[in-house]
């Protein structure tokens, strides 16, 4: 199994297109960091415009607010919406790519069961996803910490502002990245399932991307009829729950409680929905693949 996994990982990382995702992630992170480095205060002016007649926001306040933790949160908000597309590039190619090259039948001649083969392929896709996330963490979190320093983290929400003590932030990022890994694995599982049906990798990649885009739009639309009927069942609704780690509880007086999470049960519920999706997609992929007549 291990040697099979090594082969699959070698195949993934040998392909130049694998690195498109790493390059795209690096470019977005760099552009975001550069933009805020040179014109971050204008961005903050927009965020603070609602209350700037009630509070004093001098340059030193803005410099502190514009710290590595704040920047990384902004990057993740933008990038974690795009990441599924990058993950689909590899996971959608996992089986369909072999079929396209005519190597699938050959690969299955080896004394490995179809289930085992599929699990190894899926595991390789998951490892790729994790490495991509680690790359993102290094650039977005540690890179921003290095460039902008650290301070208390301010989270702007539609109905209020939450300030988290600097010592209480890092573990939230680790939790959020852990959650994002599960969320992206769900996308990988979807692309992987679609890959089983196709003979060409373009199909499952585009199909997975389309499903993610349509579901994301449905998840983000604030149309009451969808709120209770469709939204709770879409995996894309639950993919953004990583943000919940940055929402904190407070005392009656509005003092933030260190180590608290606003609504942990909601995050755990979303996490379990994603796990169910992963298991269902993977089980369906195995079921289809075991019955499939492999001709290429």
């Amino acid at each position: 199994m291990w040697s099979l996994l090594k082969i699959e990982l070698y195949k993934i990382f040998k392909r130049p297109r694998t690195y498109i995702a790493f390059g795209a992630a690096a470019a977005i992170v760099f552009l975001f960091q550069a933009g805020l480095r040179f014109d971050g205060k204008s961005y903050l002016d927009l965020m603070l415009s609602n209350i700037d007649d009630a509070f004093d926001f001098d340059d030193s306040f803005k410099d502190r607010l514009l710290n590595g933790y704040f920047i990384c949160f902004g990057i993740l908000n933008i990038l974690l919406i795009q990441m599924p597309l990058l993950v689909a590039l590899v996971a959608g190619d996992a089986i369909a790519g072999e079929a396209n090259m005519g190597t699938l039948r050959l690969a299955l001649i080896r004394p490995v069961s179809r289930t085992q083969y599929l699990l190894v392929k899926f595991l390789a896709s998951v490892i790729y996803t994790l490495i991509l996330l680690i790359w993102l963490a290094v650039l977005a979190l540690f890179g921003s910490m290095l460039l902008f320093g650290v301070n208390d983290m301010t989270v702007f929400r539609a109905g209020g502002i939450e300030v988290i003590s600097s010592g209480d932030v890092l573990w939230r990022y680790f939790a959020a990245f852990g959650y994002a890994a599960v969320a992206l694995t769900a996308v990988a599982a979807l692309a992987f399932l679609l890959s089983v049906f196709a003979e060409n990798s373009i199909g499952p990649i585009v199909a997975a991307m389309s499903i993610v885009v349509v579901f994301t739009i449905l998840s983000e639309m604030n149309i009451p009829i969808y709120d209770k009927t469709i939204r709770p069942y879409l995996f894309t609704t639950h993919m953004v729950a990583w943000k919940g780690f940055f929402y904190v509880k407070s005392t009656e007086e509005g003092i933030t409680i260190n180590g608290s999470v606003g609504n942990l049960p909601a995050i755990l519920k979303s996490l379990s929905v994603l796990v169910i999706y992963i298991a269902s997609f993977l089980a369906a992929a195995i079921w289809v693949f075991r019955k499939k007549d492999i001709l290429s």
């Binding site: 300030v163 003590s165 509005g254 003092i255 933030t256």
Partner: peptide
């Protein structure tokens, strides 16, 4: 201590 209805902040 900041006690503003839309701000949560540490001491």
């Amino acid at each position: 201590k900041t006690n503003v209805v839309f701000i949560k902040a540490p001491v």
